[in-house]
Nucleic acid binder design. Structure first.
Lengths: 343, 343
DNA sequence: TTGTAAGCGTTATCAA
DNA sequence: TTGATAACGCTTACAA
């Protein structure tokens, strides 16, 4: 039923190889045969069989997108739709297709990646997470397979793998400094998953800012939770139970920050009067929160878009040296931060 | 570099066809050769080339997922990540891969679908939207290609195409009746895109409830907007500008409802004291809204999961008659609805 | 139970 | 400028 290149060839009165050349728009084919062949293709609705093509070309024009394992609650956090949107836009421009991972566990995912690579399912891979014990990166590296991380690789591999990231250290430092300038000194820090690099970097920036300001770090003020609503709620309980609770809190993620707000409110703390809250990401809901969140916009769409772009370059130029792209950030001041006043 | 079936065959001292049979776990192969061949596959890290496979099998084990065109703001509405989550879970179970559409315009998308079908890129398709003037469905039907809609087809095709949907008429009727029972009679209706079937069905349910209750329909109370935050804001302006503004509002979508809340608050209306608001979907943020939204849970995850399941059946059994699966709904009463009191 | 060989729909090499 | 033909890596009759 489906037409093949032979059907087109027959109907156009040429050889299959000629049709193939027309598809590739080869300059060695005369304008008139091109016309004729194209007319036939149009007429009988011919589409090349991708598998036959991929088989001989050893290219697929598809990029694999690897979501974090389900334990990171990927689809619950608006971060992911937004990176996907960026990736999609760029993929669409470059005529690339998107193949999405479905694995739920870490080992599922590694197996999926192996399959994608070995069975030549995709030309390159975008990793939507970056954690310490990750096994996918070493595998990809060993296979010398094109891939880009949204986030960052371990320090040791910084010059070896390509990635698109924010400067999370600087970002966290800035956020901390902002709070410091508002005269807060008891600053709580609610990090995301401890094994995620973004969390480590946030912590580093937080430390740097405090040190430079000569404020001593109180380890009690650091807690870690998953980047979900409930994580924020729990973190607040831990933090506010300290003998000298913080007057300001830095939260790894907006969704988490909503949990923070809700829990603070339930404890009758007023935000920002009693406690200031500042978070990262600036997803849509941070604006809709009550009160609207002061947050650091990290340009999520851009992270996705650039990752896809960088990957494309790597696919096209196999031995391109690893590159890092840094996407900027921007403080969005809304209503959850306020200068400290001693009562 | 990549190993082929021949490498395995050579190393195991058998013919390529034998290896192929081992892969397929054919019962005609002796246990010992299976062992031996599998050992070799393991050893050299053999993965079958999917394209060679797909080429001869005419199957891909991949399902295509078609997002609505960008004009529907798909990635901005948490509905989509959540259906995707359901689809992913089921696809993963069935060892199916996911191929995501990237098209931004309607014609982009139609072209993508044509390519997926004709070039045999996927075995089946899930459509994440259903609108009146859609051209994808007729195409898929004509090609006799397996597909499932999340939503519903035009009435004329109800027995022809498979779909997974809520009973949106009943749902809207229930919601309206609930408001009626709370003694509201001036009930505003903020629909989504006018060309989406879900909007038509909501409207139908709304009408039915009013008619049965003997309350006359006031056409002025019906407005339509895109399912985004801003749509809700604008809708409220239109609705509350009427000479006799509604005391309760039904909103097509939670995200939109947040816009409704925000705008009402900015006009100094108290929700639910002055105006009751009830919406559909029950995405995460409806719970986090302030005040938390009364909303109709439509089990989005389930819609996705079942769509993937149904599609799988269609793929496995080519001439399976079209089936419709109805996913239930459930009223989640929170804090935006209240009995009407005349002042 | 296993091997041989043809064929899936392309592209690319070599001749013409 | 075009046409034969081999090759890509696999599956599946058909033979052995």
């Amino acid at each position: 039923m489906t037409n093949t290149i032979k059907d087109v060839a027959k109907k156009a009165g040429v050889a299959p190889s000629t049709v193939s050349r027309v598809i590739a728009d080869s300059p060695k084919i005369s304008a008139k045969t091109k016309m004729r062949v194209r007319a036939v293709m149009e007429e009988i609705g011919y589409y090349p069989n991708v598998h036959a093509r991929n088989l001989v070309n050893k290219r697929t024009n598809v990029v694999g997108v690897i979501m974090p394992s389900a334990s990171y609650a990927p689809f619950h956090n608006p971060f992911f739709p937004e990176v996907l949107r960026g990736i999609t836009a760029q993929a669409n421009e470059g005529k690339y297709g998107l193949y999405l991972s479905t694995g739920q566990t870490e080992s599922d995912i590694l197996e999926e990646v192996k399959e994608m690579v070995h069975s030549r399912r995709v030309d390159g891979i975008i990793l939507l997470y970056s954690t310490k014990a990750d096994t996918v990166i070493p595998f990809l590296l060993e296979e010398n397979f094109p891939f880009v991380i949204v986030g960052r690789p371990p320090e040791l591999l910084e010059d070896t793998v390509s990635y698109v990231n924010n400067d999370n250290i600087k970002a966290a430092k800035m956020v901390t400094e902002y709070l410091l300038l508002l005269k807060h000194e008891k600053i709580g820090f609610i990090g995301g998953r401890e094994d995620a690099y973004v969390t480590l970097d946030h912590k580093e920036g937080y430390y740097q800012a405090l040190c430079e300001a000569g404020v001593s770090v109180n380890e009690q003020y650091l807690v870690y939770h998953d980047e979900v609503f409930e994580g924020g709620e729990q973190a607040v309980i831990e933090l506010m139970a300290k003998q000298d609770p913080p007057s300001a809190i830095i939260v790894a993620d907006d969704l988490m920050a909503l949990g923070v707000l809700r829990m603070l409110q339930s404890m009758s703390y007023d935000v920002p009067k009693d406690v200031s809250v500042i978070s990262f990401n600036n997803v849509l809901m941070s604006e809709l929160a009550n009160p609207p969140l002061t947050t650091l916009d990290i340009h999520i769409y851009e992270l996705g878009f650039q990752a896809a772009e960088l990957l494309r370059e790597h696919i096209q130029t196999p031995d391109l040296p690893a590159a890092a792209r840094v996407v900027g950030h921007r403080l969005v001041r809304r209503s959850t931060t306020k200068a400290y006043r001693n009562e």
